[in-house]
Amino acid sequence: MAAPFVLPILHVAVETPRTRVVRLALGGRSFPFLAGQAVDLGRPGQPDRKPYSVACSPGQARDRDWLEFLIQVREGGSPGPHLQALDTGTLVEVGRPQGGFVLPDDRPGRDLLFLAGGTGIAPIRSMLWHALETAPGVRPGLLYSARAHREFAFAREFRALAEAGRIRLRETITRSGGSGWTGYRGRIARAHLESLVEAENLLCLVCGPPSFAADIGALLIELGVRPDRILTETWG
């Protein structure tokens, strides 16, 4: 791709109080990328850009003819001056895929554990779906941490996959969960991870704020995971 793509917004949905799922129509065009990669998004004709991980797998993008993103918004629903408004039909300039936080080519035969904090779930979702689509029989683990139970993006999707036995899911919140939350609370601890790191050939992929990634990495090593089997991406 020699030049950025300019794609229209096809669909916008409220995912959590602070995020929106935005789909950009490919219109039959090919947009090759690796699961986990990001692109710069911005309004055509102005310089402001911000990187976002593609939240769908390459196979989903090809089959459904769209790119999907999880975009954090401010109070009032604006993502910021780089996009300004998220309205159906609005044109968005999409840069080249970038980044090395992707599923390794030598992953077949390995057990996978994905660990996400906040909007770090976007590249994790892309890689998780890619693993499910390309390695029949794989059953990845997913540990997902959010500030509150209403801030789990793609929650219904992940819970449906867990109920179907396709993934092992553990959700935790770092703040008070209110009366509607009965799951794990507080900072990630050994107890959250022990049952997910039993395999000797485990490959762990971690994405979230720096403090989350550092804490998770230290716990994984403490539990016996080799450092070269922990791949990390941070933001913020």
Rank of each mutant, 00 (worst) to 15 (best):
R62M: 09
G59Q: 13
E198I: 14
D106I: 09
E68R: 07
L83R: 14
E151G: 10
P227V: 14
L161T: 01
E198R: 13
I121Y: 01
Y144W: 03
P81Q: 08
P97T: 03
A191C: 07
F31L: 00
A189P: 00
L113T: 12
R18V: 15
G208F: 02
A13H: 09
A25L: 10
L113H: 09
E198W: 06
Y184A: 15
F158P: 02
R64W: 05
L161K: 03
T234N: 09
G137W: 05
G178N: 07
F31R: 01
L67Y: 02
A2D: 12
P81W: 06
L203C: 13
D215N: 11
P44S: 11
Q37C: 04
R49G: 10
L205T: 09
T134E: 00
G99P: 12
E171D: 04
L115A: 14
L26K: 09
C207V: 09
I71Y: 07
F69H: 01
S195G: 09
E157T: 15
L161D: 00
L219Q: 11
F114N: 02
R226L: 14
P32V: 03
G177I: 08
I216Y: 03
I221N: 04
R159V: 06
R43F: 06
L115Q: 07
E194D: 09
R185F: 02
Q84E: 14
V22N: 12
R96D: 07
A38V: 00
A214Y: 03
G117M: 08
R170F: 06
A85H: 14
D65E: 08
A61S: 10
G224L: 12
P104R: 04
A135C: 05
L202V: 08
V92T: 04
G186Y: 00
P209Y: 00
L115D: 05
Q46Y: 05
L41Y: 07
L142R: 10
L169I: 06
V94E: 02
L196G: 07
L220Y: 06
L24F: 04
L10E: 15
V73Q: 13
L196C: 11
R29M: 10
W235Y: 07
I121L: 12
L86R: 13
E133H: 01
R74C: 12
G80V: 08
L132A: 00
F69Q: 02
L219I: 15
D63R: 10
P58A: 07
L223S: 13
D40H: 09
I71G: 11
G118I: 15
L219E: 11
R20M: 12
G118T: 15
G36R: 03
V73R: 13
R226N: 13
I71L: 08
S179N: 12
H82Q: 12
Q72E: 13
Q72P: 10
R185L: 12
L205D: 05
V102R: 03
R170K: 13
E233N: 08
A25K: 11
V14P: 01
A61H: 04
R168F: 01
P97F: 02
R168W: 03
T134C: 01
W66V: 04
A153S: 13
G177L: 06
A213T: 15
A155S: 13
L67I: 05
T172D: 05
Q46K: 06
S30D: 14
G27L: 08
A135K: 02
A153L: 10
L142Q: 06
L10S: 15
L91E: 09
S145T: 10
F158M: 14
H11P: 12
A122I: 02
